[in-house]
Write a protein that binds this DNA or RNA. Sequence first.
DNA 1: TCGTTAACTTGACTCACTCCAGAAAAGACG
DNA 2: CGTCTTTTCTGGAGTGAGTCAAGTTAACGA
Lengths: 144, 144
Amino acid sequence: MPTASDFERLLRGASLRVTAPRIAVLSAVHGHPHADTDSIIGVVRQNLGAVSHQAVYDVLRALTGAGLLRRIEPQGSVARYEARVGDNHHHVVCRSCGAIADVDCSVGAAPCLDASDDHGFVIDEAEVIYWGTCPECTTAAKSS
Amino acid sequence: MPTASDFERLLRGASLRVTAPRIAVLSAVHGHPHADTDSIIGVVRQNLGAVSHQAVYDVLRALTGAGLLRRIEPQGSVARYEARVGDNHHHVVCRSCGAIADVDCSVGAAPCLDASDDHGFVIDEAEVIYWGTCPECTTAAKSS
DNA sequence: TCGTTAACTTGACTCACTCCAGAAAAGACG
DNA sequence: CGTCTTTTCTGGAGTGAGTCAAGTTAACGA
């Protein structure tokens, strides 16, 4: 778990101003991967007291734009954020409870980066989402 | 392009009642792949006259549930529907204009279906979204 | 043709997210 | 340190895709 000064360095590295809400948001996302915006707001408020939801939305967008955070939004779910960036990992989503887990790239590096027929598109990223059932829900389904 | 009776057969095959709105929605999605809900409502109304948006939402959900349609919703876009189902194809999305194109599975069959570490999840589907720039936007960017 | 049950209509409502204008704070520069 | 400029934060109103609920209508099997 990085410290506040680590986050400060991150922000400065991205030439972003260092503010308490930003540190708090970074910290919240590091501590709660795949949290939705609402939970993040909750965590930030626990640490800082009153912070407008607007500020959190702003910060999340700024940090996402700067590449410090990654935004993921599986179907049927609200936007979620995570702090693991730059390592091209993917996600498994539970169809039943919506839980999300990280998955590293399966087939070596950049498995599916080449589409068979790209229609002339210039492709720069392949995003993979695995759909399935998480251990808890699998167990629950069996026992019912 | 399938005919109305083809759609009727599809519906009966899924043990769904055959109604005008359903035929119209199926037809609209076949004719306009990757259309968003609003456009679908527009097309359906052109063919049928007044249809409540609720009905279209309902039909879309019923047909998606029955596997007759597939719902896709890339980040930052509203839900879109397409009629190609069961052939495990994927999509390229243009970052700039949001255009969507179909892409067949690149690496033979079910390329990325196995995650390296599945955290105990039972995975049944891998969804791949390629992000890039479509030909039009690439050209536009160059000439500017 | 009749009854059951699924589907459709209408209209209100929710909720994530955005827009706006003004106040406040951060960083730059002398 | 003090001032100036720029960016960020606050609070509140607004937007829009999608959902809920109750009542009516129509499909389809008997």
